[in-house]
Design a protein around this nucleic acid. Sequence first.
DNA 1: CGGCAACTTGAAGGAAATCAACGTTAGTGG
DNA 2: CCACTAACGTTGATTTCCTTCAAGTTGCCG
Lengths: 238, 238
Amino acid sequence: MLALSATSEIVCESPRNVFALPLPARRDDMSAPLTEQLAQSSPSVYTAREDLFLEGDESSHILEVVEGVICAYRLLPDGHRHVVSFYFAGDLIGYCSQSTHTFSAQALTKVRVRRIPRHLLNQLIETRPQFARRLLKLAADELTVTREHMLCLAAKSAEARMAVFLLALSRRNRDTGADQSRIELPMTRVDIGDYLGLTIETVSRTFSKLKRAGVIALPRTTTVLIRDAAELEALAQG
Amino acid sequence: MLALSATSEIVCESPRNVFALPLPARRDDMSAPLTEQLAQSSPSVYTAREDLFLEGDESSHILEVVEGVICAYRLLPDGHRHVVSFYFAGDLIGYCSQSTHTFSAQALTKVRVRRIPRHLLNQLIETRPQFARRLLKLAADELTVTREHMLCLAAKSAEARMAVFLLALSRRNRDTGADQSRIELPMTRVDIGDYLGLTIETVSRTFSKLKRAGVIALPRTTTVLIRDAAELEALAQG
DNA sequence: CGGCAACTTGAAGGAAATCAACGTTAGTGG
DNA sequence: CCACTAACGTTGATTTCCTTCAAGTTGCCG
């Protein structure tokens, strides 16, 4: 029921790629009363392209994604948009942020989230030091993943960035038991571009290039089939 | 004596720029016995360009920078180097990372650091929930700062990145009571380039361009004088 | 079937990388 | 103190990759 306690243990020690974070929850390692308190809050539902919150909003709750995909983004004064991260089922959003949100969050698909009041989180930290350590581990892992993405933006070509991106989605599939070689993209080309620091044209062209090279196939615009994972890994290196 | 407890309160609520993190410590808000335990460890000293640790090394301690500047970096298979962050006096390194370091750390100047054993940190988390919350806050702030830098790399021009970088250093000066308009660069052009995702040539050219425009002056290669802070702010926007 | 949004593709332009040469500074030893 | 050297920094010319601008095309939903 509650992912908080479980996820941190499943996370790999040194995540190499983005989206390498959480997995489905176990419920046996939390104190029962608190688990129930957290579980009480019934999931909120959002439809595609609906904003869950905006940058600057009061963040009295943290969110656990139960179903669907969420896009965290920021709008810049010059009109640019930057996608900070994508969050999938099992992920936590805003669990360690300021008193106001530092980014906006938009549903990419139909989304169900569980809202956990921050004061309850603080209460858990007070009473269960184990819990605090796990939360710290989660924060540390998100930091590592963010740095990995930063490195990607600082030092890699469009092709390499796309390869890293696709491999991250592929690994996420593997970790959730889905087909590694078949990726359903819940996000548009604009979302991908804003995430990778590229224009939609470059994203599209790079997809075409990878397709021409036989590395991937694109039966539909939202479906990527990985044909040559080894080559994709090589391209991801740079 | 110990920065851990104090820094988190001084950190601004939503840091807008890198290097906006910690400030000198206060000691009054920690339980005395533990403070003393932490203070016992006498600072280690490193000379310029000496590595404190390498990526992959066991990280049994976290480091508090007492004096000097440290450069966190990663070496990529393709020979590229990426500078993750710079750490200044008062900053904490590796306080929330994996069991092995996810980046290497090198002294840019003579450096003194206090080494705090991780097990002691865990002990503090167990016994002092306040402490755990503060550590979480520190992690959250570093995440926010990292995301800010990521945005910079993803969406800004060479000129804008340099402007953001210089303003961050300027703000750090202000926060430590030093001259806002006079920046002593402890890092080389290579370090700056690897941090901003630019080549040394571009870094150098951008410095020259800013100088020509009267935005900054460069009496020496390691000294930047900010002549037109407003214009620099404008350039930082993009 | 029409209309619109998302995506693709092509051509031209620009920002930064690369390649190459020259200056400058700091550190060393005569 | 000065000459020498090597690392660091600057500047210029050229190339490359990605962006921008501009049409098309596809696919979805009424």
